[in-house]
Amino acid sequence: MLEGKVKWFNSEKGFGFIEVEGQDDVFVHFSAIQGEGFKTLEEGQAVSFEIVEGNRGPQAANVTKEA
């Protein structure tokens, strides 16, 4: 699992990017966010995740919000 911070997330469109120190930003789709209820992320929020190869390159999977 990697750790990063949410760079930005558009809850209307359901996607955004996660910043990872020393690496390129990683695309995140709302469907990759773990948990119940409305799936969104806040700018600057700490998250842990895995990287998988998507249709358009690397993207986040199994995203969990850090306490």
Rank of each mutant, 00 (worst) to 15 (best):
A67R: 12
G54A: 13
E43I: 13
K13I: 07
E21S: 08
K39M: 07
M1E: 09
I33Q: 02
V52S: 08
L2V: 10
G35T: 11
G4Q: 01
N62T: 14
K65M: 11
G14F: 02
E42Y: 11
E53H: 08
S11I: 13
N62R: 08
E43K: 09
W8P: 00
V26C: 05
S31A: 09
A61Y: 13
F17L: 05
N10A: 09
T64Q: 15
G44D: 06
W8V: 04
I51Q: 05
N55K: 08
F30W: 07
K65R: 14
E66N: 12
E42N: 15
K5I: 11
F49P: 00
A60K: 00
V20N: 04
K5T: 05
V6Y: 01
T40C: 05
E66A: 08
K13R: 15
G37D: 12
F9L: 02
S11A: 09
L41W: 02
F17T: 03
K65E: 08
D25A: 10
E21M: 14
F17Y: 10
P58A: 12
H29P: 03
G44H: 07
G44L: 05
I33M: 04
G14Q: 03
A61R: 15
M1R: 14
L2T: 11
G37C: 04
E12T: 11
K5E: 05
E3R: 15
S31L: 12
F15W: 12
V26G: 00
F15A: 03
E21Y: 12
V20M: 12
G57T: 04
E50G: 14
K7D: 02
A67I: 15
T64N: 11
S31W: 09
K13Y: 12
G4R: 01
F9D: 00
F38C: 05
F49H: 01
G4D: 00
Q59F: 13
Q23W: 13
M1C: 04
E21C: 06
F9K: 02
L2I: 11
E43Q: 14
E21V: 15
V28N: 00
V63T: 02
L41A: 04
E53S: 13
K65F: 07
A61H: 14
S48D: 06
W8E: 02
Q34P: 08
S31G: 12
G35H: 15
K7G: 06
V26Y: 08
V47C: 04
A46W: 04
K7V: 08
W8Q: 03
N55E: 08
R56T: 07
E43Y: 15
G37A: 09
K13F: 07
I51E: 03
A67F: 10
A46P: 12
V47P: 00
Q59A: 10
V28Q: 00
G35A: 12
A46C: 04
M1D: 05
V28Y: 03
T64P: 02
E21W: 07
F17S: 03
G57N: 08
R56K: 13
G35C: 04
G4S: 03
S11G: 06
T40D: 13
A32S: 13
A46I: 14
G57P: 04
E42P: 07
F30H: 13
A67M: 06
E3D: 11
